[in-house]
């Protein structure tokens, strides 16, 4: 039954892209990338109870690593993309070492401070990063250049990455991570080295965020310092929050909703988009702490128990 559902989902994803108008193929590709970024972020927030306000740093490290290697060092695209998550993970290891020493608000603030540093370095180090102008013409090779081909490519890479993340959440590592979220003190007393475990989770999250950044670089054809900016850091937060942080697929659902709304609202009324986004965040926080998926789950649970 479960297998059947998965097969149907995969079949739809395989059949759908050629049937869609090409601009929706592009939207679909972007949804997949954002979903990966938000799911990687949610490994920390939903499962580890650690909220980073600076995850754009790892997204940007991935994107810039891929772009720089391909543009400045003339690496083939696939190698550049493969290097992206490792560059981001290295950054996450270095920054995370300090960040996981703090908790809650201070954790969020230090992660933000480091992201600002990454942003500034990217912005100022013109020779390497192109500064404000970014790096242009970071396109995939010919066989991946069509939107349809890149969409399939992204779906496969993101699919595999999501499988890995799903396995991590359900693994012994994921169980211990949830235990830390619930009660760090108790976790210490059953033998978990809390900081080390949190750092490992931080690096894993950075790794997959960097992969999302790498995919985005070739999707976008260029990279800009904005990738490391505050707004980018809040994207996975908003997406995960809208979708629901308690469930693994919440951020995926959030990404679908977020990008569809962005496509229509932001295109029609670009001015109102941040207003809408901000109002949605405020509304979710005040009225729907479980996010929209949580709301649906609660409904389903209620109807089931009512019967």
């Amino acid at each position: 039954m479960r297998v059947a559902r998965w097969l149907v989902a995969i079949a739809i994803l395989l059949i759908l892209p050629p049937l869609l108008p090409s601009f929706l193929v592009v939207v679909m590709t972007e949804i997949a990338i954002v979903a990966l970024f938000a799911t990687a972020f949610n490994l920390l927030m939903g499962f580890g109870g650690m909220v980073s306000f600076g995850h754009a740093a790892y997204f940007a490290l991935g994107a810039y690593a891929a772009a720089i290697l391909v543009k400045q060092a003339a690496w083939p695209m696939l190698l550049g993309l493969a290097a992206a998550p490792f560059a981001a993970a290295a950054g996450a290891l270095f920054f995370g070492f300090f960040i996981v020493r703090l908790t809650h608000t201070y954790f969020a603030m230090l992660s933000l401070a480091f992201a600002q540093i990454v942003f500034t370095v990217v912005f100022k180090w013109k020779a390497l990063t192109g500064g404000d102008d970014g790096l242009l013409n970071v396109w995939p090779p010919a066989w991946l250049k069509s939107p349809l081909a890149y969409c399939y490519f992204t779906l496969v890479v993101v699919g595999l990455a999501m499988l890995a993340l799903h396995a991590i959440v359900d693994s012994p590592f994921g169980y211990a991570l949830r235990a830390i979220r619930e009660n760090p003190r108790r976790a210490r007393f059953i033998g978990v080295n809390v900081r080390r475990h949190q750092l490992q989770a931080f690096v894993l999250s950075g790794f997959f965020s960097g992969l999302a950044g790498g995919l985005f670089a070739f999707f976008n054809g260029s990279v800009f310092p904005d990738f490391a900016y505050l707004n980018k850091s809040f994207e996975p937060l908003v997406v995960a929050l809208l979708g629901g942080v308690q469930s693994f697929f919440g951020p995926l659902a959030g990404a679908v909703g977020f990008k569809i709304l962005e496509t229509y609202i932001a295109r029609q009324w670009p001015i109102y988009w941040p207003l809408f986004l901000g109002a949605a965040v405020v509304f979710v926080v005040v009225a729907l702490p479980q996010g929209f998926v949580g709301l649906l789950q609660r409904r389903a649970w209620r109807t089931r128990t009512a019967r």
Binding site: I168, D170, F173, Y175, A179, I190, Q200
Partner: peptide, 20 residues
Amino acid sequence: NVQTALLTHHRRHHNLFRPA
């Protein structure tokens, strides 16, 4: 709860890919 405690006790809590 108890599974997590057992997993850590047996030092399996760094395993990333086995379903716990």
